[in-house]
Design a protein around this nucleic acid. Structure first.
Lengths: 158, 158
DNA sequence: TATTGTTATACTCTATAACTATA
DNA sequence: TATAGTTATAGAGTATAACAATA
């Protein structure tokens, strides 16, 4: 029985997409559980807090609440809550924006930079460890394919 | 200035691992938001409910609460809550396990199979669409690399 | 004593919508 | 009128721990 007609091919393509998505979800959940757990145990913090600080570290000039909301892909109210926490702990600061008195620039404080530096080093070790089963070539290939996937998924989302 | 000494190479390897993880997380979140939103809008259901039914569909003989908990990577109380919901909607059933009177086998009902079939078809279309930017070759390559990543992350987790 | 599953509870994460102040 | 940010709230998702029944 010939099973490689167009319909069968198409259908097997579809299942491959589905398998990719399910496997992607599993991989992310495995890594996420490790990272969340260790951030909590070793640094008493959470992934969203870490992500927010990571964005600020990449923008030393500071970011508006707006921009943080877009970069972190969450709505504004959540950003306010996290910034409130971090500010009360002295890790970030709200700077007034002279050009627009409604807005702030959020920036890491010195203490925030130091704190994030420690977490980032540890975080990077965990991740290197979790990905140690892949060769350098495979890392490069995976990075490329994920870039394509991101572009593909963003196109549909928009 | 020579920057390709061993330490620099190691460090650039580390950053690649980190970039992979961050990109993986972004990809998953992009797809997850789409899938969650559509499951809610079109089928009034959630991703954990869908995942649970998907596991049952792959095990027509039924699964114990225990096994569901392990497969879904969540603790037992949550499985109880979801099975309660689905049972009250007539989509799954708890069958007594004669060999062990503490345990049940959870199985899709006829209605559950039908309902899941509809959702799975739609779900597959969304995913195919979200992954349409990659060629068939790239799909295959990505599937392989994710399998390796999964194995690598599971080894650390255990 | 260990295991299966349930119950109760609390916390994280996120979205929505109404609101204030400024543009 | 629109935009930046805040507040209040609700719901999804998850973990922990105490518990009952059975092994």
């Amino acid at each position: 029985m010939l099973r490689t007609d167009r319909e069968t091919i198409a259908r097997s393509d579809d299942h491959r997409a589905l398998r990719i998505w399910l496997r992607l979800l599993t991989c992310t959940q495995l890594i996420e559980k490790q990272v969340r757990g260790r951030l909590r145990e070793q640094f008493s913090t959470t992934l969203p807090r870490f992500d927010l600080m990571a964005q600020l570290e990449r923008h030393p000039e500071g970011l508006k609440m707006n921009a943080l909301s877009r970069l972190l892909m969450v709505t504004g109210g959540n950003v306010t809550a996290i910034v409130d926490q971090l500010e009360s702990e002295g890790l970030v600061e709200r700077l007034e924006e002279p050009a627009d008195r409604r807005a702030f620039r959020i920036r890491l404080t010195r203490a925030g930079e130091r704190s994030f530096g420690e977490m980032a080093r540890a975080h990077e070790e965990w991740v290197v460890d979790l990905l140690a089963g892949l060769s350098r070539r495979e890392h490069e290939e995976l990075l490329k394919l994920l870039a394509k996937l991101k572009a593909s998924a963003m196109e549909v989302g928009s």
